[in-house]
Structures are given as C-alpha cells and as structure tokens.
C-alpha cells in the first residue's frame, strides 16, 4: 500500500519533537502552569502555600470542577450549557429553604428535581427540536432566574439556612487537610473520566461532536444521546450548587451565578474544543484548579476588581491561544 498513503516521517528539530510530545500529553503544560502559579504565589507571599491552603483551594475548586464537567461533556458534542450556574443557584436555594421542613437529605434530593427538569427541557430542546444549545440554555436561564425570583418572593417567610451536614461536606476537612467534598468528588470524577473513555455513551459524545451526520448514519440516535446528556448536565449543576452552598455556608437565589463563565473557561483551558469531538475531563479539573489559584493570586496581590477582571480575561485567552497552537501543531 505504499502508493496510496501520504508518506509519514518524523522530522527533526527539537521544537517540533517537543510539540508533538506535548500534543499527545495535553495535561503536562497545564500541570506546569498550575505549578508555576502556585510557585509564584509562594514567592509573592511566602508561607501562604500550606496544607490548609491546599485544602481550601480544593474546596473552592470542586464545585467549579463539577460545573466544568457539565461544560466539558456538552462541549464534546459541540454544545454548551449556559444554564448551569443559575441551575446550581436554584438547587442551593431550594435546598436551603426546604431543609427546615423536611431535613437536609430530602431537601437535597428535592432540590435536584427542578435541576433535572431544566436539564431535561434543555435536552428536549437541543436534542429533539434541534435548537442551538447556546440559545436553548440561555433562554432556559432566563426562565430559571425569573422562577427563582418568583419563588423567593413567595418564600419570604421561610428562612434560608444551610444545614450542618452540607457545610460539613462542603466546608470541612478530614484530619484538617483532606476536604470532605473530595469524598464525593473523587468517585464522581473517576466515574466521568472512565465513562468518557471506556463507555459506549462516552464514545457517542465524542462521535456526535465530531460528526453528527456520520453518527446518525451509523445508527446513533443523536437526539436521545443529547437528551440524556443535558439531563446529566442539569443534575450535576444542581449537585455543584449544593456543594458550593456547603463551602460558603449560606444560600441566596444567585449564589452560584458568577461561576458560569469560569465553568466554560475551565473546560476551555483544560483543552476541550468548543466545536466538539476533542478534549476530556482531566484537563477541565486542572483548569478549575488553575482558575481557583488564579483568583487567590489576584486576591493576594490586592488587585482592584478592574485589574482582576482584565487579567482573568487575558489569561483565559493566552492559555486558549497557546493550547490551540500546541494542538494544531502547524
């Protein structure tokens, strides 16, 4: 078959070799970036990096990493879920307002119901009606944020309190350094990682994102895949809201809203293509850690809000651009 394939031959140049090596190991530069940021932080404020600091960073990063899972999986199919933040806020708020009547566990489960419903509606819109995911999830966030406001009005008498079980889970650490939320996050992350690589459903997410027409021709019912995907995304978002309420120790109707764009940023920094078909969850987890450390760094620098936002944006862009260059390799 020598005649029919384009000749492939490795070509010299240490730069090219390094790039090819990096392209196959996208996590390496991300971990280096993370380590660099941590080192820089220690230089700027000696002594800040401690066991406690690591635990607290992880506590803050975990809800973001869960939201980034929603973006990673939807982006793999070429979609996006811009309703995750309002859904997370909604779940946190519903849990905090119902727990005094029905207890923390039932309240948490009840709080996941509307999250699942929103995800299901998103999935039906995107998967069955073929609405553009950006549009569908933006529209649903309008509905959700309005609905949370309406709910808040009607619930003016009942107080909001985050039960101690949830704050223990989100805000406390085992033996002083192992965040309790890791206990739920590690199995969850492992499940997502294995599912994306080794399960039929995970493969289908990549397949749909790579080529929807081809997937359909191969017999994949793309609509069903997407309905299930956005349902999962909604449930995960609700779950992230509960954890974050535990980290903060209180809940309002807009608690998690500011996490929307960082959740997208974490997935993008982690190397998942917004056009679908490429990427994975491991990068998104590191992306969430990088963003969390970055926020700490900007706080430590006592940068004014304006500068923090500008730097935040610039760093997202720089990482995405670098990443694009490494993976394209041309």
């Amino acid at each position: 078959m020598t005649g029919s394939a384009t000749a492939v031959e490795p070509r010299g140049g240490p730069l090219v070799v390094a790039r090819v090596w990096l392209r196959d190991r996208p996590l390496v530069p991300l971990l280096l970036l993370l380590a660099g940021l941590v080192a820089l932080l220690e230089v700027v404020q000696p002594g800040i990096v401690s066991v406690n600091w690591v635990a607290s960073t992880m506590r803050f990063a975990i809800p973001l990493a869960i939201l980034a899972a929603c973006q990673t999986m939807t982006m793999l199919t070429g979609g996006i879920d811009l309703s995750v933040a309002v859904v997370a806020s909604m779940s946190a708020y519903v849990m905090a307002t119902t727990q005094s009547d029905i207890g923390w566990l039932a309240a948490s489960l009840v709080a996941l119901v509307p999250a699942g419903v929103v995800g299901l509606v998103n999935g039906i819109g995107v998967g069955l009606f073929r609405v553009h995911p950006l549009i569908m999830t933006i529209s649903m966030s309008l509905v959700v944020s309005g609905a949370v406001n309406v709910y808040a009005r009607s619930n003016i008498t009942g107080g909001t309190r985050v039960p101690s079980e949830i704050t223990d889970l989100g805000g406390q650490s085992l033996l002083g350094f192992l965040p309790n939320s890791l206990i739920v996050f590690i199995p969850l992350a492992a499940l997502i990682l294995v599912a994306l690589r080794r399960s039929g459903y995970g493969r289908l997410l990549y397949a749909v994102g790579d080529n929807e027409v081809a997937s359909r021709l191969a017999g994949v019912r793309v609509g069903r895949v997407l309905v299930v995907l956005y349902l999962i995304s909604g449930l995960l978002a609700g779950f992230a809201g509960l954890i974050y309420a535990g980290v903060i120790g209180s809940a309002t109707g807009r608690l998690v809203d500011p996490f929307l764009l960082p959740s997208v940023a974490a997935a993008v920094i982690g190397g998942t293509s917004i056009f679908g078909g490429r990427g994975g969850y491991a990068g998104s987890i590191v992306g969430a850690l990088i963003l969390t450390v970055l926020v700490t760094f900007l706080n430590v620098m006592q940068a004014p809000e304006a500068v923090r936002q500008i730097l935040f944006g610039a760093i997202i862009l720089a990482v995405a651009a670098t990443y694009t260059r490494i993976t394209e390799g041309s």
Binding site: G200, R203, Y206, D210, N211, A214, G219, V220
Partner: peptide, 20 residues
C-alpha cells in the same frame, strides 16, 4: 466526510455502529 469521525481513531470509527 458524512460517514466518518474525522478526528477520531480508526478503531472508534469501525466500532461506532456497535455502540449505538
């Protein structure tokens, strides 16, 4: 281009129908 997952390996392309 309407039959293949261009960014995916040969193996996943061949295995795709079974996973549907």
């Amino acid at each position: 281009s309407s039959a293949l997952l261009m960014q995916r390996p040969v193996r996943e392309n061949v295995a795709l129908p079974r996973l549907a």
